[in-house]
């Protein structure tokens, strides 16, 4: 494995019965990169991601995440990654602080570390006044940002974000991407799926999945040049329509 690569996939395949959800995809993600994983609904993005984060076993192919094999070392992978799912997944009936403490706890952070981290995090997000309020009472944008910060709590090498900006307003989306940039600048690799094509422009490199296969993989700039279009939206449309 190249020392610079934190994710390596080779001919990674997932079949559900006769249906091939992910068809022999190969790609690498470099350390500190923001890697956009694009595709229409049902193209196989989420399935591919689930194989990488160790909750779905591949049918065939090889993959390494943070230097660990997805077949044999899923437990080691779990310690080194953060994950934020499509659904908002903090506990609504726990306060901001309790959520942070809980997730810090299941990642095995020490009590002292959790205290420091949660203080820092609450300050950064400007949540001081609501730290003892139930998360359920916060607006969605705040929840998403909190959720992202929680997924970074244990300083993972890679953070996987599954359509993190679904359903939030443009301003929050903007702030969200600022947070992603900040995390990347601090050395965290960001693996993000999205179907907002404008967001694809923010990524260092993007891959576009169509019907289980990766049809394109490059920097947004190169892709636009290659397809001779002005924006990523058109790149996507050209690919998806074949």
């Amino acid at each position: 494995m190249n020392n610079n690569n934190v994710i390596e996939a080779q001919d990674l395949t997932k079949m559900f019965g006769d249906f091939t959800a992910v068809n022999a995809i190969s790609f690498e993600v470099k350390k500190g990169e923001i890697f956009g994983f694009l595709g229409a609904n049902g193209a196989g993005k989420t399935t591919a991601m689930k194989m990488l984060i160790g909750i779905s076993k591949p049918t065939a192919g090889k993959a390494k995440v943070a230097g660990f094999d997805v077949y044999k070392q899923a437990e080691d992978i779990k310690k080194n990654i953060g994950y934020m799912s499509q659904k908002f997944a903090l506990y609504d009936d726990l306060t901001v602080k309790e959520n942070i403490t809980f997730f810090g706890g299941i990642y095995g952070l020490s009590r002292k570390r959790i205290k420091e981290k949660s203080k820092l995090l609450i300050k950064e997000l400007g949540l001081e006044e609501v730290e003892n309020q139930l998360v359920g009472s916060l607006p969605l944008g705040w929840k998403q940002k909190l959720s992202f910060s929680v997924s970074l709590l244990h300083d993972p090498k890679i953070v996987f974000l599954d359509e993190p900006t679904g359903g939030v307003d443009p301003i929050t989306r903007r702030q969200f991407w600022e947070m992603i940039y900040k995390a990347a600048s601090e050395g965290t690799t960001v693996f993000v799926t999205t179907h907002y094509m404008d967001e694809a422009e923010y990524c260092d490199r993007v891959s576009i999945m169509v019907n289980g296969k990766i049809e394109a993989l490059d920097t947004p700039k190169n892709l636009k040049q290659q397809f001779n279009v002005a924006n990523m939206n058109d790149v996507f449309l050209k690919l998806a329509r074949g």
Binding site: E75, K87, A89
Partner: peptide, 13 residues
């Protein structure tokens, strides 16, 4: 239903 189970399964617990 809430999706937190997935988060838990991805965590080391």
């Amino acid at each position: 239903e809430l999706g937190t189970m997935e988060i838990l399964l991805v965590s080391p617990i």
